[in-house]
C-alpha cells in the first residue's frame, strides 16, 4: 500500500471523526489547532486506525501524532514492521 493511499484513507478517517471535509484536511494540518481534535477524538482516531489497519498503536506513540502527516508516517511505519514480521515468520 503506498503512502499516498494511506494518506487519503487517514484523511477520510479524520474527516469522519472531526466533521471537517476531506478537502479541508491537508497533510500539514494540526490535529488539535486546525481540526479541533480533543482527547476523546484523538482516541477515536487511534481506535479507528487500529481497526482499519489491524495494527496496534503504543500508548507512548499517541502523543507524537500532532499532524495528519505524522499520523500517516506512524501508520506506514507500523504496517512496515508488520510486514517484516510476516516475512520473517
Amino acid at each position: 500500500m503506498s503512502e499516498n493511499t494511506i494518506e487519503a484513507e487517514i484523511i477520510s478517517i479524520i474527516a469522519d471523526v472531526s466533521g471537517f471535509d476531506p478537502e479541508e484536511i491537508k497533510p500539514e494540518s494540526k490535529l488539535a489547532d486546525d481540526l479541533e481534535i480533543d482527547s476523546i477524538k484523538a482516541i477515536e482516531i487511534v481506535v479507528a486506525l487500529e481497526k482499519k489497519y489491524k495494527i496496534s498503536v503504543r500508548d507512548d506513540d499517541v502523543p507524537k501524532i500532532t499532524t495528519v502527516h505524522e499520523t500517516t508516517e506512524l501508520v506506514s511505519r507500523l504496517l512496515q514492521q508488520d510486514n517484516m514480521i510476516h516475512v520473517r515468520s
Binding site: D38, D60, V62, P63
Partner: peptide
C-alpha cells in the same frame, strides 16, 4: 494537553 489523556488510553 490533548495527548496526556490519549497516552493513558489502555490504562
Amino acid at each position: 494537553s490533548l495527548n496526556s489523556f490519549a497516552r493513558i488510553r489502555s490504562w
